[in-house]
Design a protein around this nucleic acid. Structure first.
Length: 665
DNA sequence: GTGGTGTAG
DNA sequence: GGTTCTACACCAC
């Protein structure tokens, strides 16, 4: 998150820096853990989670064989031939578990900020203060640290900050135990006085361990980071700029003159970075609510026609709409992002276009998401055409759909659907035989360095030893393991993965939106979208059960839409259907004559022929073009028709609803 | 509100 | 360094 480490942003709600106790909690190889919970037989095996041709993450067993995050599948299998791979492209199970974790933490500490799916910041100052208040007079003497202390420094119980941090480490140990016993997840944590430091120090001992940073070790920790890029908040771009200035390490940054830094990077960025480099981070832990946007995307080698784009969008939209339905809120904005392939072969930066969702569609999000597929698809295609002239060759490598500006449904019980998913009587995933499972995460033990023994190494049922100075821990269910009945509720591997070892969508879509637009390549050959307007939509068998939001009457079909796809339901209601005559040439009524005559003569002729063929076809039932015999003028797809770009100004150009012809009806 | 950019895991 | 699939914040407009 961009502002996770923003300095001084948002106004601190905490006491002055130095007295806060902040923790960073990192779920160990989260995706792999979730997969092992879903399929306990994977425990102990080298497991990789793949997305496309990459192993995006893997468990420690796989790491022992040289598999690394973001390694290519090929290389990973070379390194570890027995690597078990599961498909992690569908983030649903990870997202669900992630919110369960945040919710569980929030039950014990209200100040929890999410950072991605597998990390959380906690401001445990208040929890610590409460425990300090309960200490017996002189009780400090017995205060112990749970887990490691960075660089094995001894705490000074005379120092109130040390005392609070030590108690904070106990709090985090308990929370991690609670996470493990309740959800079956192992985690690592860092405890410090700021988010930045807590995050950095949490990586010191992993997995399933935690580390406390005492203030006087701050500089040593930061300097140990090495490359400046490792400082949280300094990303690749900023690191590049810094390196260009000769700033390669934290030490370089600390020594670099402020004035020169401000001159090169601007005052705001320079000051922020300088503070990060010195370990100053006043950013408060800002409790995360439900997500502010819900998006889905897919990448691919090539997508170069409107029909293909529609097919891809047809894969994204149903699951997105289902997520929105579960969320319980209404999005007011829809955004399409694309990534084009540049001539160099590298991906271009993303581009996006967004627009408000027409108000008349909003109620459907809560009641009838299936009926939104067609109108939203149509809007997305219009957004696409705002970015690229689809009549010309194009090559996309990514499509992303994002719903944002989420508001509570008028009738809704509230927008808590997201959190509710993670609650209820039983977790959607749990663990069986937790003692066995721990083997994957034991790694380097934490019994030394003053840390408490790794609880998961204890024999079943054995309590972790209480130590002097301990304060009673959180009441936490399932300290003795999950009830058997609960474990039996857990989905089997076959249920989750369709029995083939690869993940299938874990949330079945409602029937009516399984293949809403009939856009699968098998059921929807190219010609299917190459039809006249939306009027033949019912001919597409796979559309069964899906209503068009609004299907224009046949009489409204005009030449500009001779090959419009079913989504491409631009409302032409206001346009004249009468052709106009300009310079002795009869051109379609909604085409700007001036623009038309600026075109090369051959293009003009081609367009005219196209229009003529369209107007001849207009009243005939649509027929699938014969393979190999399709006339060049009809190809490749009507949505690509050049006519689209010849419309008089004001039609189809500009922002927002009206510009897209999607205004309220 | 929109679109680009940067950051994060 | 960029691959993946997200999510968020900032800022100029």
């Amino acid at each position: 998150m961009g502002a996770a480490f923003a300095v001084g942003g948002g106004g601190s709600r905490r006491p002055p820096a130095g007295s806060s106790v902040i923790a960073h909690l990192d779920l160990d190889c989260f995706y792999a853990q979730v997969e092992m919970l879903r399929a306990p037989e994977l425990r102990g095996k080298a497991l990789g989670v793949k997305q496309k041709s990459l192993v995006v993450t893997c468990n420690y067993e796989a790491r022992r064989h040289g598999v690394k995050k973001l390694m290519s599948l090929k290389e990973a299998v070379e390194k570890c031939p027995h690597l078990v791979l599961v498909n992690g492209e569908d983030l649903t199970p990870y997202r669900e578990m992630s919110y369960k974790v945040t919710e569980l933490l929030r039950e014990h500490c209200p100040l929890v900020e999410r950072l991605g799916l597998d990390e959380n910041f906690l401001d445990i100052t208040d929890v610590v203060e409460q425990r300090v208040g309960r200490l017996q007079p002189g009780g400090w003497a017995g205060i112990r640290v749970s887990g490691h202390v960075y660089k094995d420094q001894a705490i000074n119980v005379q120092d109130p900050t040390h005392r609070k941090l030590a108690i904070g480490s106990q709090v985090m140990e308990e929370l991690r135990e609670c996470l493990y016993s309740t959800l079956g997840l192992s985690s690592s944590a860092g405890v410090a006085t700021t988010k930045l430091l807590a995050k950095v120090v949490s990586g010191t001992f992993k997995p399933n361990q935690q580390t406390l940073l005492l203030p006087h070790s701050t500089q040593e920790l930061l300097r140990s980071l090495g490359p400046i890029r490792k400082v949280p908040g300094i990303g690749s771009r900023t690191a590049e700029r810094l390196e260009a200035l000769g700033v390669k390490t934290v030490v370089d940054l600390q020594r670099f003159p402020s004035a020169a830094l401000e001159k090169e990077l601007g005052i705001a960025l320079a000051q922020r970075i300088r503070k990060l480099g010195s370990g100053q981070d006043e950013a408060p832990v800002t409790p995360s609510g439900p997500p502010q946007s819900i998006s889905d995307e897919d990448s691919f080698r090539k997508c170069s026609s409107e029909a293909e784009v529609q097919e891809k969008l047809g894969m994204l939209l149903p699951s997105l709409l289902e997520r929105i339905r579960q969320d319980g809120r209404q999005p007011r904005t829809i955004r399409l992002s694309i990534r084009r392939l540049s001539s160099s072969g590298k991906g271009f930066p993303r581009e996006c276009r967004q627009c408000p969702i027409p108000p008349h569609l909003l109620p459907k999000f809560g009641t009838d998401p299936g009926s939104l597929l067609s109108p939203l698809g149509s809007i997305l295609m219009k957004l696409l055409r705002k970015m690229i002239p689809t009549a010309l060759p194009f090559h996309l490598t990514l499509l992303s759909v994002c719903f944002s500006n989420l508001r509570a449904l008028p009738t809704a019980k509230g927008s808590i659907g997201f959190y509710l998913q993670g609650k209820g009587p039983a977790p959607a995933a749990g663990q069986g035989g937790r003692g066995k499972e721990a083997a994957d995460f034991q790694g380097k033990g934490s019994a030394s360095c003053g840390g408490i023994p790794n609880r998961r190494k204890l024999p079943e049922g054995e309590e972790s030893p209480r130590r002097d100075g301990d304060i009673p821990s959180f009441p936490c269910i399932a300290q003795e393991g999950l009830p058997e009945a609960l474990e039996q509720e857990l989905p089997s591997r076959a249920e989750f993965h369709g029995g083939n070892g690869l993940a299938q969508p874990s949330v079945p879509l409602p029937k009516e939106i399984e293949n809403p637009m009939g856009l699968s390549s098998a059921a929807h050959p190219a010609g299917c979208s190459n039809r006249v307007g939306a009027t033949q939509a019912s001919e597409c068998p796979s559309r069964t059960g899906v209503r068009m939001e609004k299907e224009p009457p046949e009489a409204e079909i005009i030449p500009t839409r001779i090959c419009a796809s079913r989504w491409d339901t631009e409302a032409p209601a206001t346009a004249s259907v009468e052709p106009t005559c300009s310079k002795g040439v009869v051109i379609p009524p909604d085409v700007d004559p001036e623009t038309f005559h600026e075109l090369p003569a051959d293009v003009q002729l081609e367009l005219l022929a196209q229009w003529k063929s369209g107007s001849q076809q207009r009243d005939k039932p649509w027929r699938k073009p014969k393979a190999g015999k399709r006339r060049r003028l009809e190809a490749p797809c009507g949505s690509n028709s050049l006519w689209r770009y010849l419309k008089p100004r004001g039609e189809g150009v500009g922002r927002g609803d009206a510009a897209l012809g999607m205004g309220p009806e």
